[in-house]
Amino acid sequence: MQYLFKGRIAPVWLGLTIVTLLSWLISSGQDNVMKPDLTVSMAVVVIAVIKARFVLREFMEVGHASRWLRVLSDVWVVGLPPAILVALSV
């Protein structure tokens, strides 16, 4: 058990879980009626990509990796939401 709470992985995991529930709350709203809402869509995508960056940095340990890797993973994290936003709204 000790390893589960060693370092930052436990708080990171807790944060990811809370944010997941949050994005579920944003999206599901009061009832199960599907209403088009670009703001909700973008919010969940941005939250997902932020979570992805935490997975990359904390679990996959990209922070300690070589430079090209850090740069490329950040390009992905920063580039994906705008690309999806453009695709969703053009």
């Binding site: 997941t20 994005s23 579920w24 944003i26 999206s27 599907m34 209403k35 088009p36 809402d37 909700v40 869509s41 969940v44 995508v45 939250i47 997902a48 990509v49 992805a52 994906l80 999806i84 969703l88």
Partner: peptide, 10 residues
């Protein structure tokens, strides 16, 4: 990301 895109986007 798949969860967000498939299940949560509106």
């Amino acid at each position: 990301v798949i969860f967000a895109l498939m299940y949560l986007t509106r």
